[in-house]
Simulated scan of single mutants.
Amino acid sequence: MKQLTVKLCAAVALASIAAFGAQAQEAKTISIAYSVDVLDETQNQALDAMKSRVEEINASRKDVKVTLDVYDAQSSVDKQISDVQTALIKSPNVLILSAVDAAGSLPAAQAAKDAGIPVIDRRPSDPEPDVYSVAFYAYDEVRYAEATTNWIKKYLDANPGKVLNVGLVYGAPAQTAQLRRADSVKELAKQQPDRIKIVTEGYGNWLTATAQNLTQDWLLAHPDINLVVCANDIMALGASNALQSAGRTDVMVTGYDLTDDGVQRVSANTQTLTVGTVLKDSNQIIDVAVGLAENTFKDKTFYVNPVYAIDPSNVADFLSKTKN
């Protein structure tokens, strides 16, 4: 009897070991390659949120192990294409692409598709090329632009005697989707020509220093300018710096991306408006990537919600709700 009991215990132990081994083998690695156009302040904050989401999934799920390999294209199309070729050697399950150039970076996406790897477009263009599996609208240009133009309309309604003399600071010319951020103000100016006048425009190329130099020049050439619309908060910082140096507290500055610094400038009254989604919500792209790898995500588009328009009237409330 004792011998039988020993044999049964041994059998149970072996079965447990086998079951544990089977469970361990069932943990599937989901590898995600992320080719980002440039790791600037905004993209670094988004990347931190993505890495945190990877950690959360790995901590909560024992059946998968998610990995994230990041490639910084440093604003170079050639480097992005080369980076993706390097990434494809590792045969990732999913490629996330934040394109340097909507057209120039297409060969990178095409190479992944040809290799049978689904591609998420983090900078969707209109129309969306069919090489992409999912258009991920972290930066939804239509909703972003609408939030800014709605804010301008409300401002004009509240200030019926005011005429806005506007300078437009675009991002990089090759990234055509973002042009809508400033172009929407042009369209509004056509609708209300007696209230909005576009006096100047230029490309800031997403750089603080470039936007600062542009604004300094504009203050000399167009002393009546009273609104600078920037395509992101990094360039809005440059405009703000130029205005503070010139002592021009009468000029409003708007930006996009809802960066921590941008929100703080709104709170300090050195920036008037920032529009965007909360950067930490960019982590949702990891769930989309995992869904693609597991064949559970079937949609062609994904929109991060909500879009905020933060100005001095609501910045304190926003900070109190999002401080954690």
Rank of each mutant, 00 (worst) to 15 (best):
L164C: 11
V229M: 04
Q178D: 12
R181V: 00
E187L: 12
W218R: 05
L188A: 02
T200A: 13
Y203A: 11
I225H: 02
D224V: 10
D224N: 15
G255C: 13
A211T: 02
D194W: 12
G247P: 05
A147V: 00
A189Q: 01
Q192T: 11
G262R: 02
D260R: 14
A242W: 03
S184N: 09
Q216E: 15
L258V: 11
A239I: 10
S240Y: 12
T149F: 00
L168Q: 03
A236K: 05
L214C: 01
Y170M: 09
N205I: 08
Y144L: 14
V185H: 00
E141R: 11
K153H: 12
E201V: 13
P193A: 08
T200P: 01
L214D: 00
L237H: 03
K162C: 09
I234A: 11
R195C: 05
G204P: 09
L188H: 01
K186Y: 02
A177Q: 09
V166L: 09
V253Q: 02
R248G: 06
A231C: 15
D217N: 15
N159D: 13
L220D: 12
Y144N: 06
W218D: 01
L243C: 03
K186H: 05
Q192L: 15
P160D: 08
M252C: 05
L188V: 04
L227Y: 02
T254Q: 02
A246K: 12
N150I: 07
G204M: 11
V166P: 01
W218F: 09
T215L: 10
N159F: 14
Q191E: 13
T249C: 04
